[in-house]
Design a protein around this nucleic acid. Structure first.
Ligand code: MN
Ligand code: MN
Ligand code: ZN
Ligand code: ZN
Lengths: 143, 143
DNA sequence: TACATGATGATAATAATTATCAGTATCACG
DNA sequence: CGTGATACTGATAATTATTATCATCATGTA
């Protein structure tokens, strides 16, 4: 398989720990797991894992485009399975309750790309985060 | 003035510290200052200030819509002067070098609003963050 | 199988932020 | 203008997320 090559040609080793971290995040596709949440989930299958390994592994898997990092501004870094171009998505984040909604990437288009171009940004890889009030929170108090 | 009312009717007091924090952030409009950067700048005018006061004051001024909080995913919370609707702006953030570019809000429009509507988000107050590679970083290595 | 070295777990160290608490300053009231 | 109730402050301890260290272990190649 390709994964093994990808690791080996960089002198990296495929360890039990790395495999289980991948499995756990992929199993929870749709969620945005924090490092410590991933730590807890991995422990269920591999109780000996150390927290430091989690913190080493996640950025590594991100660099290898096996995971994506996302910060929801709640004080910790989160991860989700890497989505190939066809299934890219963006995020709507409620600044009050923290709810996260996902949006298919292809709903975004011309306008952002224009903005990105106008500002000397690459249109190849980008991600959008929209902050606002979800319907529930918008109703509660008049923003 | 209106500020005094806004404070008093909530039982809040206008202190020297709060005034100077406001002044400092407003003086640096266009930048996105971290709490500790603000701490250092405030000390120039009011050397006795305590760091705890900074951390208490900033969220308070944000809640009063005098400042805006922004997280650039570099491990700390940042603030900028609150921008009234007419001068709202959004942010482009380079995921590699961390450079931040500002975009006039009215360049964004139909498409985001549609997305927001489709996802039961309020169109009243929202902010966009675009993550990508700035021109320089996009050239350096082929992403 | 053996070994070179990359990876791990335990733990100490940082960095940002929050909680405590005794002393201080603000402001409504007289 | 005092004065007092109490909101606010500075110092500092405590938390939380993350990073650095280092001795030991395990992977993959020869
Ligand atoms: Mn997602
Ligand atoms: Mn800005
Ligand atoms: Zn909400
Ligand atoms: Zn860049």
């Amino acid at each position: 398989m390709k994964l093994k090559e990808q690791f080996n040609q960089k002198g990296l080793r495929i360890t039990k720990q790395r495999q289980i971290v991948m499995e756990v995040v992929e199993k929870h596709k749709g969620r945005h797991l924090s490092s410590s949440e991933i730590f807890e989930l991995v422990k269920e299958n591999y109780s000996g894992i150390g927290l430091a390994t989690i913190y080493r592994t996640l950025p590594l898997l991100e660099k290898m485009k096996l995971l994506s990092k996302i910060c929801l501004d709640d004080g910790c870094v989160r991860y989700e399975p890497y989505a190939p171009k066809e299934q890219e998505h963006h995020h709507l984040i409620c600044v009050k309750c923290g709810a996260v909604y996902e949006v298919e990437a292809d709903l975004l288009g011309i306008e952002e790309k224009q903005i990105i171009m106008n500002n000397h940004f690459s249109t190849q890889n980008y991600m959008v985060k929209l902050y606002g009030y979800c319907k529930t929170c918008a109703e509660e108090d008049v923003v």
